[in-house]
């Protein structure tokens, strides 16, 4: 079979595993939707200040939540799923077949990207229809941002498994790292860029992802292209670092004793 064929089979296997698993479907998929409804309802009609622009809360929140959904579908989902599969020997067994490692990874990443796209579309359409947010100004920039973000956070999810000792610890470690950064990065409510929290968040990729998404959605027509080069580059750099770490240290077998 061709390389593309092998990779596509893996994607389809991962998709079936994802949607049939109530836990992954709930946390990666329904969670962002629930957040959407809760926060959008809570802060309905409020105005927020993003740099020099004033927009409605929902116009800020929807692109931020698109980024949040992508991060959940890629980072959280991959880190937890692969830790579990490593622990119960599924990865080790797979390593003993002729399936090339790159094809396995392609399946995992491809499937996460599909979930990301579905989530992004749903979130955006929901935002437009129910909460009256503006239609994204720069669809091309939004697509590129989602692509870069998804790839970077998939790589970060893989790299995260390196420090996860076993499957039981996985959810606690992953969320313990992810959620605080998500909060200080202003996912649920904007954090002024002059604040200490924002200064800390600047070091991590989450805030840059949200920024880049907001620039692409561009509700106040601030940007000519919708591309935020600096934010995209910083995310890509994090992703590249994670790829290097994963290539060097990713484990297919459970840690002994």
């Amino acid at each position: 079979m061709s390389s593309t064929g092998i990779a596509l089979r893996q994607v389809s296997f991962e998709q079936r595993s994802f949607w049939r698993n109530p836990a992954s479907a709930f946390f990666a998929f329904l969670f962002p939707i629930i957040f959407l409804v809760v926060f959008a309802t809570l802060f309905k009609g409020q105005k927020v200040q993003i740099g020099s622009v004033q927009t409605s809360y929902d116009d800020y929140y929807i692109p931020a939540l698109v980024a949040f959904g992508v991060m959940g579908a890629c980072f959280t989902n991959i880190a937890i799923t692969l830790s579990l599969r490593r622990d119960n020997g599924i990865l080790k067994r797979l390593r003993g077949t002729p399936l090339p490692p790159w094809a396995f990874i392609a399946g995992v990443v491809g499937s996460s990207i599909i979930v990301s796209i579905v989530l992004a579309l749903l979130t955006t359409v929901f935002g437009i229809l129910v909460y009256g947010v503006h239609v994204p100004q720069h669809v091309d920039a939004a697509a590129v941002t989602i692509g870069v973000g998804a790839l970077a956070f998939c790589a970060l999810g893989m790299a995260m498994t390196i420090v996860i000792p076993n499957a039981e610890a996985a959810p606690a470690i992953v969320n313990g790292v992810f959620l605080p950064i998500v909060f200080i990065s202003g996912t649920f409510f904007p954090v002024a860029s002059t604040s200490v929290l924002a200064q800390i968040a600047e070091w991590f990729p989450v805030r840059h992802f949200i920024n880049a998404m907001f620039t692409a959605f561009d509700p106040a027509h601030q940007s000519s292209s919708g591309f935020n080069g600096t934010d995209l580059l910083i995310m890509a750099a994090w992703g590249a670092g994670a790829v290097v770490l994963s290539v060097l240290r990713f484990r297919w077998e459970p840690r002994k004793g």
């Binding site: 296997f13 079936r16 595993s17 049939r20 698993n21 599969r85 119960n88 020997g89 599924i90 080790k92 067994r93």
Partner: peptide
């Protein structure tokens, strides 16, 4: 010791 993927 090896598990088989549960969802298929």
């Amino acid at each position: 010791e090896a598990a088989v993927p549960p969802m298929l």
